[in-house]
Write a protein that binds this DNA or RNA. Structure first.
Length: 509
RNA sequence: GCGGAAAUAGCUCAUCUGGUAGAGCGACAGCCUUCCAAGCUGUAGGUAGCGGGUUCGAGCCCCGUUUUCCGCUCCA
């Protein structure tokens, strides 16, 4: 099973390259790790996914508008969002078990152990003293508890100090002093603590002397938050309303793996929905349903989707769930739906000193809205579709065919025009049909090779329909329309072709 | 980042224990052909990931490096 799924992923990666979907970045220079380029077909599929998302979010919801904020933002944005601090994880490896840990987590776990000891003392004392037990007093007076509490505060103080001053050597010392051991190997044989900043930084200002460090955004959401009042006022939006944005984001992933699933440069499709405080759960549920409906509208099977509710919440959320998709390597996160509270807006109020309150003209109240976020990885969606679409079929005649059953409206090319033979005027007729279709659909014309070979080639690229011009076409202006998935053909008049293709290529059909 | 595996033509792979690289498929040009990758002819494509070392001689042995895949953490 493991080997099969690995093989499958390898085949998909090879197929994606062979048919112009995904190339590795800078391949001729040995590639750049965890960065990929989209080829001629990849860019079409990606554009189509993005457009369908945009249409579903912005066009179909009158209370959602779009935005395209810049990748580069004022450095304080990332201070406010918590990315500068929260995503600066100090990491440490145990040399014996080869396991990697976050140094702060190791220390927190250690503190938790001490807290458990304190709790034990308290429950013991509670039993002994019964109703007369005063926990507050006990905490202040019991020698062992006092000592442990003091220890905790000392550890916290030293750890925070070392982190803030960037003294990672001291973090290691602290771990060694406390004799924190690896839960796997049980040893205290640690590497140095290293800091991995998840944000890419660059210099702004052409003179290096007065250049300042700025970051490439690690998420698109902050561009929405800092603009939310601009949009609200100029679009005259009333709560609840949403702002949608697609765009690149950058993360210096420690471990980037699994093809385009986790990349250093990736594209997000996010919508931040601003609501009245207290209504966030209602809208959280609403968007959970809406987003799942969107996924299922693509025709991907519901068995390949599942929910994953977060138990441990990020610093900005009060509820969070993921839509996971069954990739060849298991169920993995595809989209997140988070109730982000007023954390981000409040943080920007605090750091910018600007009032970002929403004034409700009806109730005459002024308040900071709560935010419900839907955030999907475009590249992951691309990969989900690609993985689902890739099929190796065993045909009745014993032959095999490789087909990409991409949802027809998303396919890079919608239709291929194929003259049955390259003579008898079929080419000319084919060109004529092709020219009439290409204004309406992404369309390809092919006359080389046997017709069967061309069908298979289009199956492999994922083109959902082939129009074949044969001798009958010259007599009665009809062509055959071949379906990629069923390989069935129907004869149809050239006149009806555009209307017919429109019908089968739309999501509403 | 740590550990394991891999890297030869566009793709899939050969090259037996070191003796200056081959096949199939694909691509391209042409011929043949009335519907599902399998007819015929010809052409182009590789300084074996890259850089060192050992050797008379390295695709093969050694070291380094890059990339990919797998396990450990996080996330869209």
């Amino acid at each position: 099973m493991q080997n099969n799924s690995e093989d499958l992923l390898k085949k998909i990666i090879a197929h994606a390259k062979e048919y112009g979907y995904i190339f590795q970045s800078s391949e001729i220079y040995d590639g750049l790790s965890a960065v990929y380029d989209y080829g001629q077909n990849g860019v079409e599929l990606k554009n189509n996914i993005r457009n369908y998302w945009w249409q579903s979010m912005v066009q179909y919801h009158e209370n959602i508008v779009g935005l395209d904020a810049a990748i580069l933002m004022h450095p304080t944005v990332w201070k406010a969002s918590g990315h500068v601090d929260a995503f600066n994880d100090p990491l440490i490896d145990n040399k014996d078990s080869k396991k990697r840990y976050r140094a702060d987590v190791l220390i927190e776990d250690y503190i938790q152990k001490i807290e458990k000891k304190i709790d034990k003392e308290i429950t013991k004392a509670q039993k002994r003293f019964g109703d007369a037990f005063d926990e507050k007093q006990f905490r202040q007076t019991h020698p062992r508890v006092v000592e442990n509490l003091k220890k905790i505060s000392e550890i916290n103080k030293r750890f925070n100090q070392s982190l803030e001053s960037g003294d990672l050597a001291d973090v290691k010392k602290l771990i060694e002093t406390l004799n924190i051991v690896c839960p796997v190997s049980g040893t205290c044989n640690w590497t140095d603590v290293r800091q991995f900043n998840l944000m890419f930084s660059t210099q702004m200002g052409s003179l290096s002397s007065d250049a300042q460090t700025i970051y490439m955004r690690p998420e698109t959401a902050q561009g929405i938050f800092v603009n939310y009042l601009n949009v609200q006022k100029t679009a005259r939006m009333k709560l609840p309303f949403g702002i949608a944005q697609t765009g690149k984001a950058f993360r210096n992933e420690i471990v980037a793996r699994q093809f385009i699933f986790r990349m250093k440069e990736f594209e997000q499709m996010e919508m931040q929905f601003f609501v009245k405080p207290g209504q966030e759960m209602e809208w959280y549920d609403y968007w959970k349903n809406e987003r799942m409906r969107w996924h299922l509208s693509l025709g991907l099977p519901s068995e390949k989707y599942r929910w994953h509710n977060h138990e441990k919440l990020a610093h900005y959320a009060n509820a969070a769930t993921d839509i996971e998709f069954l990739f060849p390597f298991g169920f993995k996160e595809l989209e997140g739906i988070h109730s982000r509270t007023d954390f981000d807006l409040n943080a920007h109020i605090k750091h910018s000193g600007k009032k970002l309150h929403y004034f409700d003209p009806e109730t005459k109240e002024s308040f900071v809205p709560y935010v419900v976020e839907t955030s999907i990885g475009l590249d992951r969606m691309f990969m989900a579709i690609l993985c689902h679409a890739y099929k190796e079929e065993q045909l009745k005649d014993g032959s095999t065919r490789t087909v990409l059953s991409i949802p027809a409206p998303l396919a890079p090319y919608k239709v291929a025009v194929l003259p049955l033979l390259k003579k008898d005027g079929l080419s000319e007729k084919g060109r004529e049909v092709f020219n009439s279709l290409k204004k309406h659909f992404m369309c390809q014309y092919e006359e080389k090779d046997a017709i069967g070979r061309r069908y298979r080639r289009n199956d492999a690229v994922g083109t959902p329909y082939c129009v074949t011009i044969d001798h009958q076409t010259l007599e009665d202006e009809t062509v055959t329309l071949r379906d990629r998935d069923t390989m069935a053909q129907e004869r149809i008049s050239i006149q009806e072709l555009i209307a017919k293709l429109r019908e089968v290529l739309s999501f509403s059909s």
